[in-house]
Design a protein around this nucleic acid. Sequence first.
RNA 1: UCCUCGGUAGCUCAGCUGGUUAGAGCACUUGACUGUUAAUCAGGGGGUCGUUGGUUCGAGCCCAACCCGGGGAGCCA
Length: 504
Amino acid sequence: MTIERLKETVGRKTTLKGWILGKRTGKGLVFLVLRDGSGMCQCVVDENKVNTNLFEDAKRLTQESSVVITGEVIADERQIGGYELQVTDLEIVHLSQDFPITPKEHGVDFLMDHRHLWLRSKRQWAILRIRNTLIMAIHEFFQGEGFIQTDAPIFTGNAVEGTSTLFETDFYGEPAYLSQSGQLYGEALAMAFSKIYTFGPTFRAEKSKTRRHLSEFWMIEPEMAFHDLKMNMDTIERFLRFVVLKVLEKNTFELDMIGRDTTVLKQITEPFPRITYEDAVLILKGEKEVDGKNAVKTLEADLVAVQERMAAIQAEITDREAKLAAPGMKKGEIGFHQAKIQQLKEELSEQEEASRNIPMWLKSARDFRMGNDFGGSDETVLTRLFNTPIMVYNWPHEVKAFYMKRDENDTRWAKGVDVLAPEGYGEIVGGGERETNLELLIEKIHEHELPMEAFEWYLDLRRYGSVPHAGFGLGLERLVAWTCKLPHVRETIPFPRMYGRIAP
RNA sequence: UCCUCGGUAGCUCAGCUGGUUAGAGCACUUGACUGUUAAUCAGGGGGUCGUUGGUUCGAGCCCAACCCGGGGAGCCA
């Protein structure tokens, strides 16, 4: 039996197998919180109802010891998961000693070094279960719409876009690179199966140290024959709505556990604004308003709010420190104030960072020049005005990849689309309609100084039965990060690989 | 690669302008208490203050170089 299915055995004797998440002892009572991978459940050992050996065993249990535990299931609203086990039998499988991750706070470096154990904690458990829901929902959506799941190679002989830094490996004496995108192969597959999607690992060797970059991440890349930019955007919108609604439906417990406010997530049912690059730039520079909201003014108001919050935190810290200095305080109360002060100091340093960043973002937004690509801060400034993902399309062709289709009506633009998630998460999807004009493609390959011979096979796709087609790439970890509102993508993947981090 | 912040007990941190045996909380351990849910009480062990070199009568605190980490820029999902 698993904790997830305890409701099926209420009132009956049930055996669970798992690990001890925590223990509290009372007079004649031991409270064990058991986790079994499917959920958590409090198990109560009552000295009066079990033999002495069993009770002593229960008292010996330590954090993360593994056990097989039997008892009667009762429903109890107050307990985690809603049920409790009245223990009648207990077998210790392994007694754990000094589990490194205690119920207290730890720094990221320590936690990352213990990632193999950190995965057991509640928050990580909840996040990775949501990741699972998203993965399954992604398959469900595409399979439901008649897409074929297929795979692009991981070893490639050349860089797709020529700009990114790739991981170089040795392929039987030849240099080979780990795939940074399955996009071009996806196009070939779409010409064979009409609608396909790939779902696989992607590698980028950039030395990025930010909250939204990984060296190894998972990307979903659909590609659709006989689709144009508009149809592509329709698909993206249906797709994102579908997967987010699945999480809201299946992971209420997990979302609650990580403290995710789902108000914004629920707005996924509203239409996603579709904004041209030109309009987006005007909005960014504060020259155009959205529903009466001005990007620059909104950000300036944010800055004031941040500064006020900093002053408030500072005042509270001073106040609590004064209380600590006064004599006669009980030990527990001292600990409480100290913990609170530490919390406040952490928030203060976050706010300080925001107060340094916002003026820079404002400057970046004001100085933005039409024709450039958006930076991370520009995305934040822009999305600050919306509560749903937004789609920015028709980009200057110079900043987009060589395969992006040029707009026939206005050749300044390439028919690409970036989807920017709200709440500061920025780009989660990048895609567009692909160029079908053979001459223009060849011209672009030269322009990007890419090796023509490596793209001959790709050009064949335009020589034999070329059709309008479009597709996009979704970064799984960024989607998980936004869905869970996490401060960093490193928590969205079991074993993150990033600059400076290859172990565990 | 550049900018910025940091590296003090197992963990999270304090240590004011350099001054005698380096502190707290948690964790651990001993005992008391308790249908509990990180705020009960009392006692105990635990640190070559990232590395190397320098300034000084004296350095955790100052200087230099290097190593490691956080955040950001660039690049992008």
